[in-house]
Design a protein around this nucleic acid. Sequence first.
DNA 1: TTTAAAATGAGAATAGTTATCAAGTTCGAG
DNA 2: CTCGAACTTGATAACTATTCTCATTTTAAA
Lengths: 123, 123
Amino acid sequence: MNYSRQREVVLDTLKQNVIHPTAEKLYSIIQIEYPEVSKATLYRNLSQLAEAGIIKKIDGLENSAHFDHNTCLHYHFICEKCGKVFDISEGVAHDVVQKAEQETGFKINSHEIVFHGLCRDCK
Amino acid sequence: MNYSRQREVVLDTLKQNVIHPTAEKLYSIIQIEYPEVSKATLYRNLSQLAEAGIIKKIDGLENSAHFDHNTCLHYHFICEKCGKVFDISEGVAHDVVQKAEQETGFKINSHEIVFHGLCRDCK
DNA sequence: TTTAAAATGAGAATAGTTATCAAGTTCGAG
DNA sequence: CTCGAACTTGATAACTATTCTCATTTTAAA
């Protein structure tokens, strides 16, 4: 992967926004300071960075993918009322892969957990 | 919800196909025997049935939603090679909701786990 | 039987994302 | 340094999955 100013902007902006933004949300944030970054470039870079393991794509939340600069294993909670996304620590399901591999005999390479409910402010 | 022949076909066909089909896959299956069921009706009925809790929509697999006639709590595994979807029993993460609620103070109403890897035949 | 609510088919519309392609940029070999 | 191949970009077209629109048909309860 070669250096590009646009990719740097995408990654830096994602790092500064702990809100697990969607591509569109990130685009609107980036537009304010860096209107030279096009939407195609944003989507391309998000894919590439996720592919390279530098960021993480979160599927299973609403219709659109969210992105996370934190690539350490952890889970997500989305509030049904305010729509905010929160992190849940790995600890809540620490041996889940081992158990699932034992049960099935499959090789598990990754897994995600998404919780839905009401956050502290909304409940 | 009133009775409709089309809805009956959608539900019955889903029940007979344990493969967790996408809407498009289900459409192609239904088309063979019941070409009178339109795509709009299929999507509408899948939404309604899921809304009513009669079937379950599975998000977070590929780009498109899959549907499951089994509404009991369980998880899913998708094979990275053959694309097949398998069930994983609830037992692999039995106290995950309780732990997550304790950790966060949030009210959790539902959760999903998706595993990725290689199934027994593909590994 | 009447009738209001619900459901339908066909296709238009939308949202999110990916593909195309010509032009500009990066970077390592010479 | 400088040249070229590979990489990246912006603009926009295309695509996919899904939802919406609306005139027509079906359901079901009085």
